[in-house]
Design a protein around this nucleic acid. Structure first.
Lengths: 346, 346
DNA sequence: GTGAAAGCGCTAACAT
DNA sequence: ATGTTAGCGCTTTCAC
């Protein structure tokens, strides 16, 4: 390691005190313009930047944000993370990423780990296991000891904090109506995340739309799978024994798996069975046929989360918490025949 | 924020000095067993953990690792990040993730940003732009000022540091030979990353295998695309005017795009055209037909990177730099008819 | 306008 | 065995 460059170095070089250098660098008006220029010139020449750790200790802020994400392989979360990283970087914040792997234990352990000053706040999407077991104490603890927290997508009503979501109920409700309008009469709902906050809302939206026109339609059917191995058995079996002409999937992979199963059983998509998935990305774009999906505006969710957290960090008084709803959008491709005017096609 | 819990708090409570508490907590044998137990009990009761920033300042180490990754939407990099996060977490390190977006500027800017003590070292896979322009000064600078660095996948021969790679030449060479053995005679190579270190090696491996049996085979053809829009035009055009019975793609998306184009032109896969891609994941598993790919063992690369960096951080003497080669594996699915014994099939 | 000094919370060399 | 002290690099109050 090179000899370290500190305020002291600069001070010695200029024969002034450390505090003069510090103040000059921060542009304090206590200092003469001449001195400020002299100091700043030297600092630039030496390429000086303050030691962030020392600065953090003194200032009691780290410029670090802890991001807890269930699963980085999911396109949605990866895109959110991109948005978070980009926006955080723009505002001078670093992100410390924890991939919880949907595990309560890892989530709780890490929250506690960061309750001692290593980060300024949290951005989190709750692990599936946590949402199933409804154990939210770790979040409450973080908030109680004073850490700002922003939840996105998978949020908890029980926790009082800023939240960024899409209107899961309405987008699913509307999409289901679109499918009905396009002629589908036996619409089923499948996912692996029925127990999550968003999964529940999506089920409600789907069910509401079906119930509204229940005379014409088959009753709502919600299939839940624990993992994707189950699809091959359960969905396949269901299709054998029931009339189905549309499938709504509440997560990004379920739709693709459903599509493969439907394809392999020889059904024509979308003529015989329509399929809609959640989360846009490379996968639905490149399936055969390309999948109609609900674009959750992941990047925007990420950016909004960061900005909301930063605002919270910079405001002294505690204004009341907000839940911001990001507008989602149906992206129609070839797995449906909704084909209304004005809908984006890729 | 609650009243802060520091060594001082504990010291006051027990009527001992701060240093006694500190030493007790670290299990120093200078301290009597009785005192150590008393202190540790109280610390546990209060759930005390040392302030990491203060500790960092004193110890001159942060337990933070900066990870620079070109693109988090690529399955390969996402998996590497998973491996990194898991292993880092296990060893008490936090990871600060920078997504360079293949941009030299963002990469260089962030490296410089972290040269002042915010992290202990770097794990990096070089941005495409950086590899094209061959500007590596920022890496050299980081190493010069004393930061350990581990490069993975996209590495630079010009930079002297620890590296984790797969044997890109040989895996591509062997795969090309497999295709030849399976009867393919007009094998072309496509990718968007021909200018990266790994892209170059893969081209070499491909070319070497073809040249070895050039009498029977069409000459090597390497197509380069800047982006995926180009595929629709260039690859489609190429297929119209040339005999092609196998496509090797050096990146994970190219193979999927190629597959879609080949499908849409009505060629039978693999009977008329075989396709092999790089990087295993959800996408190739779920294309139609499922894609044969080269599994780059991304998670293992991530874990190995972390362990290599940590070893470097903990060793005083500077042992010579190593390049570790992780064993890649061909995963055969239905886009090829290589079908040799012993190859894993999913 | 500039400098001295305190202190953020911690560790460790050096007393006692 | 325990305490005192110095100091990591910085900001900021207070003195001059």
């Amino acid at each position: 390691m090179e000899k370290k460059l500190t305020l002291k170095t600069l001070a010695k070089e200029l024969n002034v005190s450390v505090s003069t250098v510090s103040k000059s660098l921060s542009g304090s008006k206590e200092i003469s313009t001449a001195m400020k220029e002299k100091v700043q010139k030297l600092a630039k020449q030496y390429n000086y930047t303050p030691h962030p750790i020392a600065r953090s200790l003194k200032m009691r802020r780290t410029s670090n944000i802890c991001v807890l994400i269930p699963n980085i392989l999911a396109n949605f979360f990866a895109e959110v993370l991109m948005g978070i990283e980009e926006e955080a970087s723009k505002h001078g914040y670093n992100i410390i990423t924890i991939i919880t792997g949907e595990s309560y234990e890892k989530e709780a352990k890490n929250i506690h780990l960061f309750l001692n000053g290593a980060v300024d706040g949290f951005i989190v999407s709750i692990a599936k296991e946590t949402q199933e077991t409804q154990k939210f104490d770790h979040f409450q603890k973080a908030i109680d000891v004073g850490y700002p927290m922003v939840m996105f997508d998978r949020v908890a009503d029980e926790i009082h904090c800023d939240k960024i979501v899409i209107d899961d109920f309405n987008i699913t409700y509307n999409t289901t109506k679109d499918l009905i309008d396009s002629g589908c009469r036996n619409i089923i709902f499948i996912s692996t995340i029925n127990k999550t906050s968003v999964g529940k809302l999506r089920i409600k939206g789907y069910t509401a739309a079906i119930k509204e026109r229940k005379k014409e339609l088959a009753a709502p059917v919600v299939l839940e799978m624990k993992n994707f191995q189950e699809y091959k058995v359960k969905l396949s079996g269901y299709l054998d024994e029931n009339e189905v002409d549309a499938i709504i999937s509440a997560d990004e992979l379920s739709a693709v798996y459903a599509l493969n199963i439907v394809n392999s059983k020889g059904y024509k998509i979308p003529e015989e069975i329509s399929i809609v998935g959640f989360t846009d990305g490379i996968l639905p774009e490149n399936s055969t046929p390309p999948l109609t999906t609900i674009d959750q505006k992941a990047v925007k969710i990420g950016k909004t989360s960061v900005n909301t957290l930063i605002k919270r960090l910079n405001s002294e008084e505690s204004t009341s918490y907000t839940t911001q709803v990001i507008e989602a959008e149906l992206v129609e491709r070839q797995s449906t025949i909704i084909s209304k005017g004005g809908i984006k096609t890729t």
